[in-house]
Design a protein around this nucleic acid. Structure first.
Length: 482
RNA sequence: GGCGCGUUCGUCUAGUGGCUUAGGACGCCGCCCUCUCAAGGCGGAGAUCACGGGUUCGAACCCCGUACGCGCUACCA
């Protein structure tokens, strides 16, 4: 079997789309599974869409996701450059060959004529297609126009009434009639190639064996097939991936939620979870397994098992997977994450011991789905309560509460050095018994006083972590404040 | 409008002619546990396999048609 070489070929629009992430992942998995190479190529042939820093963002997002490319920008594998904008001479040369063989031709039509033509066709409910007006230009006419510096494009000369048939790994046989295919512009008037030309030339020159890309490319694949034929090149294997969809089943878009990998990163999702989730959107191994690490994905992946219908991006399932992955992270990882998040937070002035932070992690891990959430759900480990939850106040703060809590604080103060969370339990239970009330009558207001909240770890864990001194002082504060 | 691709619980999916009274997961609901919130355990509801024809002893699975959805229809990728 020939060498497996696949590419992820995004256009640098500013960020990595999760759909793009999945495309990249499938390419990556396929490459790794088959001892092939995963190549990153930047399709920056549209000057009007140039975005500052986009390539850097893209590469960073891929790196964060763990999809390291074998060849690409700054990583030459002998097939570079990997920026299409740096390969203009190559495209020009091949375009000239096409023109010489009459498989492409110069077109000098103005945008106005093109628009008028399209409008006319549309009004008659005809397919919008270039009318090959410039195909009939003579050599001398072309030369004259060229000399006169009239702007031109080079168009693909689609033969009429032929069938173009190709095989797609995911969709099997696909057939198009050339009568329905437009004479695609190959070289734009600014001298840049369009995607269609550049992609075929680069895939051939870069020795790409499998073209794995989104379904939106399926309709233009016959143009590419024609180009391969005109050049006399071997056609790569195609695999057109189903689209990722919004909940309303339209193509996944910004308007209906987050689509950038960096958005998910910012929200605290882990790359492992995001990758695991996205891998399952359109692929499965044929069994019930849903939790995967990268190495297992590589081991099991095959294009043949990719689905052929679009998949809704279901954030709930992502949340679940994120949680599953999160629970399996080693403590040291969580600790270092928490430290760096704290450093960037409003609580960055204090210095917390590893021991302290580890206790927090242990108490919160079942209650959050990311380290970031620890700060959101339990700020009380880092600051005294700034306010007290109204609902809990109404429910748990009774007229006799201040007196009870003061008494409890007094008894806590009598405790020696705290060595176990249950040290707090005894005085609390005793007081409850003496007053002939349920422990809950003390526990709920106590939690509120100490944390300002009504939810969180077990109350004894809570007290043990924040410590005896802070517990007592916070009770004092709460009694005054509430 | 034309062309292409698709259609199994709300969602992701298993299923490739008899093993299927269509399996799993997320979510949802209930119960248990319990100082709260979670986590965990147990259980439940939820799909006439888009619809209509055909082929077959037998079809979610094969064929044809229809409907619907999506994609493409740019000197964007």
């Amino acid at each position: 079997m020939k060498n497996i070489r696949v590419r992820f070929a995004p256009s640098p629009t500013g960020y990595l789309h999760v759909g793009g992430l999945r495309t990249a992942l499938y390419n990556y998995l396929f490459a790794k599974r088959n001892n092939g190479k995963f190549i990153l190529r930047i399709e920056d042939t549209d000057q009007s869409r140039y975005v500052e820093g986009a390539v850097e963002n893209l590469i960073n997002a891929l790196k964060w996701s763990g999809l390291e490319f074998d060849e690409g920008p700054e990583k030459d594998g002998g097939f570079g450059p990997y920026f299409q904008s740096q390969r203009l001479d190559i495209y020009k040369k091949y375009a000239a060959d096409l023109v010489k063989n009459k498989n492409a031709y110069y077109c000098f039509c103005s945008p106005e004529r093109l628009t008028a033509l399209r409008d006319e066709q549309k009004s008659q409910n005809l397919q919008a297609k270039y009318d090959k007006h410039c195909l009939s230009l003579s050599e001398t006419e072309i030369k004259e126009k060229l000399d006169a510096r009239i702007p031109y494009v080079i168009r693909l000369n689609i033969p009429s009434f032929e069938k173009v048939v190709f095989n797609d790994i995911i969709r099997n046989r696909v057939e198009f009639d050339t009568a329905t295919i437009d004479d695609q512009v190959l070289i734009k008037s600014d001298g840049f190639p369009t995607y269609h030309l550049a992609n075929v030339i680069d895939d051939h020159l870069m020795d790409i064996s499998h073209v794995i890309r989104g379904e939106e490319w399926l309709s233009s694949t016959p143009k590419h097939v024609l180009l391969y034929n005109f050049f006399g090149w071997e056609i790569p294997q195609f695999a057109h991936l189903p689209l990722l969809l919004n909940p309303d089943k339209t193509k996944l878009s910004k308007r209906q939620g987050d689509v950038a990998v960096e958005d998910y990163r910012a929200k605290g999702y882990s790359p492992e979870a995001l990758l695991n989730f996205v891998a399952l959107l359109g692929w499965n191994a044929g069994d019930d397994k849903e939790f995967y690490y990268m190495d297992e994905l590589i081991e099991k992946f095959s294009l043949e098992r990719v689905n052929n219908s679009g998949a809704v991006f279901d954030i709930q399932k992502l949340n679940w997977l994120n949680t599953e992955h999160f629970r399996k992270l080693p403590k040291e990882n969580l600790l270092s994450q928490l430290k760096s998040i704290l450093a960037d937070s409003e609580f960055n002035d204090a210095n917390y011991s590893d021991e302290y932070l580890l206790l927090i992690i242990e108490s919160m891990i079942e209650r959050v789905t990311s380290v970031k959430e620890i700060l959101e759900k339990s700020p009380y480990f880092f600051t005294d309560p700034l306010s007290y939850e109204e609902e809990s106040k109404a429910k748990n703060w009774k007229p006799e509460t201040p007196e009870l809590l003061n008494e409890l604080a007094k008894r806590f103060a009598l405790l020696g050095k705290i060595t176990d969370k249950h040290d707090f339990e005894k005085p609390l239970k005793e007081l409850a018994a003496e007053k002939e009330i349920g422990a809950g009558k003390l526990i709920h207001p106590l939690r509120l006083a100490v944390s300002g909240m009504s939810t969180g770890p077990g109350v004894y864990d809570l007290l043990y972590i924040i410590g005896k001194e802070k517990t007592i002082s916070r009770i004092g504060k709460a009694v005054k404040a509430i």
